[in-house]
């Protein structure tokens, strides 16, 4: 049997969830005997292959048009989609901007911010556009497995991947279910 193909990408995320994935440490070596990571945000190949993968892992909230596109592409190209971390599952800290207007949020970040000198809100046409509100992944595409946590522990990630490899639907509860 060939290796199970796994693709991963991040949306509006802090990279903490992918750090937690790397926290699998030596368990990664064992995992890599059974899975092949086709693409990730920290490798040269960013996009899941057109031929598709078995498991897609997304971290971060859907905050702009680019995030939306990445999420839709991942959904199209994977059989099982995992939303990894609070931002992907609930919208997380990214949804802080939902409590004020987009103008206020941008102004606060790019102009008013204490460390900014002569700031202005970026307006290049090359940039993706912000969505009206930051969303959880399951508000944009169907999600099969939710693994909350800020970030989820390496143990929880290992549990989910192991269960999937064993052909079971992972149940996230007990010590694996954390919101912080």
């Amino acid at each position: 049997m060939g290796k199970v193909l796994v693709a991963t990408d991040w949306l509006a995320a802090c990279a903490g969830c992918h750090m937690s994935l790397l926290d699998l440490d030596e368990r990664l070596v064992g995992l890599l005997e059974k899975i092949q990571i086709t693409s990730s945000p920290i490798t040269d190949l960013k996009h899941p292959p057109k031929e598709g993968v078995t498991v897609g892992i997304l971290t971060g909230a859907v905050n702009n048009t680019s995030n939306e596109e990445v999420a839709r592409q991942m959904r199209e190209r994977c059989q099982v989609l995992i939303a990894l971390g609070d931002c992907a599952v609930f919208g997380g800290i990214v949804t802080m901007r939902n409590f004020c207007s987009m103008r206020e949020a941008l102004h606060r970040a790019y102009v008013e911010c204490e460390t900014v000198v002569d700031g202005k809100v970026p307006a290049s046409p090359e940039l993706s556009r912000l969505l009206p509100t930051a969303l959880a992944v399951n508000q944009v595409v169907k999600v099969d497995v939710h693994l909350p946590g800020c970030p989820p522990s390496a143990d929880a990630i290992y549990h989910v991947l192991s269960e999937l490899l064993a052909g079971r639907v992972p149940e996230v509860k007990g010590e694996y279910l954390k919101y912080d």
Binding site: D86, V89, F90, G92, I93, T95, H146, L147, P148, C150, E171, V172, K173, L177, K178, Y179, D180
Partner: peptide, 23 residues
């Protein structure tokens, strides 16, 4: 959102959500 709340871990609402597996 629990990640920036100081009651996280000692919150009764959170404990109930954990108990009933709200993922």
């Amino acid at each position: 959102y629990c990640m920036y709340c100081q009651m996280s871990g000692d919150c009764e609402l959170q404990a109930l959500a954990y108990r009933y597996g709200l993922d």
